[in-house]
Design a protein around this nucleic acid. Structure first.
Lengths: 197, 197, 197, 197
DNA sequence: GATGAATGAGTGTTCATTCAT
DNA sequence: CATGAATGAACACTCATTCAT
């Protein structure tokens, strides 16, 4: 009855959510290139004209989906953030959070990878996105000041701290290889070895 | 007549080459999703029907282009390979070769990234491709035996040895950041710190 | 309460007026073919659903807009009508009125032209419209009786009396040609030469 | 058998012609605004993708159809052109030719009217088109020099010489009114009265 | 081997209109 | 009265591919 009386003519957070999930799933299933507006709409259970009620056009749909996931990732990364911990532990916790999140949300992460290697990446305001990850960057700055972390150009730090992680967690990487908790601990140690003073 | 036939052969190889370059350029310019057979053919200066003389279909075109680039990369990586050098130096030379190659051939590398994050990746026989990179893997195995390199699951090694490098070389990563020879040396040192025993 | 209701009435009439103007402006700006209900509504500052409160559907909107303009034209044509004047002067005044009106209201006239050459023209009751122009036709009948005007089939008279005028006043006709008061006087003389006995 | 063996893969003048006729017919039947590429293609008996083999896009289809008809009209107007005739007779012949042509080809003329009152008119190079009608304009110039025709701004001359004619011949004008040869003679006399010195 | 013609199926997007609020 | 949400149908156009030449 609830369903019967559901307001079909009021903008629907559920529908927006459904489009978000459908976008991710479709890109995962058939790839960025093959993901058409109509396929995404069908997956979401709405007509493709309805999609345009919620999104200006395809680009905006794809970009907003990307931004949404990036926010989720930053929230995952910074969950349990405790700046009283020793610096290495802060990073380890972030690393671990992120590993777990990506492992459990590979569909989202796969979307991010496909999006980021497409020309759509140019359509995102990266400065705004980076702000979500600011605390981690600040921790690293502090580490540099305290001569705990190598004083090198910043992109080098992320390239070693976080980039290998994404590869390890990514679905296509671990074909046939199982990484257990111990491996993750080891991997973090390697990342730390790379950046520590 | 000899000349005549040779001429024909040359012409053919030229066209195949033109299609290869056109594929890379088109994907670079407008992205994987927007790269259509006819656009690629136009870029190559042939009709799209001609493309089908050289490639069974679009997928085969994209896959073979990917494989071709991967071979180029392996050749670059292993250029100047000298197994009499100390292990660290072998890796450093490979690292450096690859950095230079990617920097100078970002169009190819961009293609690889877009391809590898698309579902087409499943269409490639990765075992065959990996074989091109075998010498490097063998070097690492030797390092492990000699307790110079950490004895960890193999994917962890590549994740730290080579993956950060690709990010550093990638055009979109270094927006505004200039990496000089010194930085590259530092970056290699970081990779080495990550994997060394 | 009186005020309250009157206010509502005013508001309504304003919206209807806004839709009328928006229809004309939109058709002028982008043409009949490209003028959609939603664009017209947006131009009028109302939602497209609201448009349907005032007009049964798109056709009725376009037709009623046409009829409205035709009324305006007839009012312009017959302004200052004075049947005591000599016949030629009555026509000259009408001619002049109309020239001025079209020149000053080319957006309306452009709409009329686009509408009249479209199949929508079949949807208008022309007999009713013609009635608005009756006085002019009656003047011409009197002229025929008095052997001042040629006794020819009536469409011939309008074809020479009024049709050239619309062309001369139309924006697209006079590209680069400036017609001054004197030219208009000459033009009327030509029309008069065509129809006079 | 001829039909059976007809070459289906060679560009086909017949098909181009069919598209031309289909464009005119469709616009006539349902109007400019409602004439879609797919309807025109269906009318022509080809798929709408095939239409794009022959025309770059809808605009080019519509414009080229317009230009084609204008050429036909100029050919009709100037048929039997004989500059040794007295000036009035040259014009009368042109007038008559045109009346006959429009009467017999009202579909084409209706297309012209709809096109010319649409914003597409701006897409045509009018100077080039005018050139087709040059001889008639030159005749009028000669008439002015010889003081046979009024020396007034040129648009006034065409407005009275040719514009009433198009109205008289146009299908929608003569609803219920039959114009016979005599009426046409009279109409030309009226036009001549308008422009003669 | 090379290509222009051909097309059914699809693209992203807008359409006119309805309906619940 | 006014409107935002909703949609099936249509839009102009491109797709990957085939085929006759």
């Amino acid at each position: 009855m609830n369903v019967y009386f559901r307001n079909m003519r009021t903008k629907d957070e559920e529908k927006k959510q459904a489009l978000f999930e459908a976008t991710v799933k479709t890109v995962n299933d058939i790839g960025f290139a093959a993901s058409s507006v109509s396929k995404i709409a069908r997956e979401a259970g709405v007509s493709s004209s309805t999609l345009y009620v919620y999104h200006k056009n395809k680009e905006e749909l794809l970009v907003s989906t990307y931004v949404e996931i990036k926010k989720k990732i930053s929230r995952a990364l910074l969950g349990n953030y405790d700046e009283t911990l020793p610096l290495r532990d802060i990073l380890r916790r972030g690393w671990y959070n992120m590993y777990v999140w990506i492992s459990e949300n590979q569909v989202y992460y796969d979307y991010v990878e496909q999006f980021a290697s497409s020309p759509f990446r140019a359509r995102v305001n990266h400065d705004v996105l980076d702000r979500y990850f600011l605390p981690i960057f600040q921790v690293m700055e502090k580490g540099i000041e305290q001569k705990i972390i190598k004083n090198v150009k910043r992109p080098l730090l992320s390239a070693f701290m976080f980039h290998p992680l994404t590869r390890l967690a990514a679905v296509q990487w671990c074909q046939g290889v199982e990484l257990d908790e111990n491996d993750i601990e080891i991997a973090f140690a390697m990342a730390w070895d790379a950046i520590r003073f």
